[in-house]
Design a protein around this nucleic acid. Structure first.
Lengths: 227, 227
DNA sequence: GGGATTTTACCCCATTCGGGGGATTTATTT
DNA sequence: AAATAAATCCCCCGAATGGGGTAAAATCCC
């Protein structure tokens, strides 16, 4: 019965450690409930392969390593969730620091499992996440509880980059105005500068943020809470 | 070997539903790793029995129902954690409302399991909680993630107006694309519509949102989480 | 003191945007 | 069936935007 095929969950793995990835793939292949559709060794690799898939073939759940060469798992998650993709992402990693956990949640990961999770639990987690649950390793959950209890984010000390882009003070100021929805001329009047200057700043901001429109800049600025 | 006895986890159940309590006790008794030391049908019952225990016999993990006659499971948890007792408490309940979850965390519960959790998982959770983990049912965890993500407490049913503007479905769809930072032409290609149509929609969106630029629309859309 | 960065300002040019119209077709509601 | 609202497509036009330059102060850093 092909119906079986229809019901299987399409799962993807993004993991750079060759042997680990291989073993995990092999293990998951034992499960009839799953269909391993895309195994990548980096985010770039993943995105590249992803383009060759049709809508109905796209992975529904991704096991995402955090520490990856090039684009990190967190950044990759951010991009995936930005797009319209209907996909649930499980961070699958050895890291337990508050910073990474918090960031993963912020960018939209719906699960967080440690790599030593028994394979049966991993498979259950994959199924649960599709049903709207958020499988989380107990030791991670403990940290989450603390966050909720204290209502605090782990921004405290280890804030390597509050601003992912190194905008200069002046640029941030301008960006704030842009987020307010003002035009260049309006900003210029507000800050007593030439409209040309504003324009130059905005061009530089775009370069640094890697966008090419105000809308995109506003979106990024808000999402990454630069302003 | 009595050593075995030493290593077994002393577990307690507080649950008012007679049959459920009985069955759960029977099931847990199958597990050699556990020692069911105190089964109570109410918080009062529990505290009363607790006094008859010596220090070395006190339960280390408690499966605590929330809805109890008299003192609630949350209140009981609060009192237990107020005292010096070295005990980990797992809320074991059918409730999934943000309010109860949040309160349970506040008073110091370290785990939150739904009553339909498979018995094996319950036992694992008991062991994990003693190792500093916080076992949480996935559907509960999802709510936790939301709390962390939005940094909000479930103080009220709040959300007086999820969408302050009555955008039509099509308009919301277009708005989403605008938030992505796309140009009218790009949107048109994505949605297989004429650029003129997109433009018309956007003009209407602006009217409804009372803005006059993409940047402003994006900001509003994100702030009011329309998209 | 000297190089690097930031801030400021300007030019040209093609594209996009925003606002003003109008018009037809398809639901939806009444 | 008539009225309303939603969704689609089109035109004109001036203003704003985005991208490519150049360049001179001011400031910061070593």
């Amino acid at each position: 019965m092909e119906q079986n095929t229809e019901e299987r969950l399409r799962v993807s793995i993004v993991e750079d450690h060759d042997i680990f990835r291989k073993r995990l793939s092999e293990l998951l292949n034992f499960y009839n409930e799953l269909d391993l559709v895309l195994v990548a060794s980096s985010a770039e690799d993943f995105f590249e392969k992803l383009e060759r898939y049709k809508e109905e073939e796209l992975p529904q759940v991704i096991l995402m390593d955090i520490e990856l060469p090039g684009i990190s798992g967190i950044e990759a998650t951010f991009r995936l969730k930005e797009d319209k993709h209907d996909v649930d992402i499980i961070m699958f990693t050895v890291f337990e620091d508050d910073e990474r956990i918090f960031e993963s949640i912020q960018v939209g990961a719906a699960g967080y499992l440690l790599k030593d999770t028994p394979i049966d639990d991993v498979v259950n987690s994959i199924k649960e996440i599709r049903q709207g649950g958020s499988p989380i390793s107990p030791s991670i959950a403990r940290k989450l509880l603390t966050m909720v209890k204290t209502g605090e984010k782990p921004n405290s000390k280890s804030n390597p980059e509050e601003v992912p882009f190194d905008l200069s003070p002046a640029e941030i100021k301008i960006l704030e105005h842009v987020v307010q929805g003002k035009t260049n001329k309006e900003i210029a009047e507000d800050v007593f500068l030439s409209p040309w200057t504003i324009k130059t700043h905005i061009k530089n901001i775009y370069k640094k943020m890697q966008v090419n429109s105000r809308a995109a800049a506003v979106r990024l600025a808000l999402k990454r809470k630069i302003v």
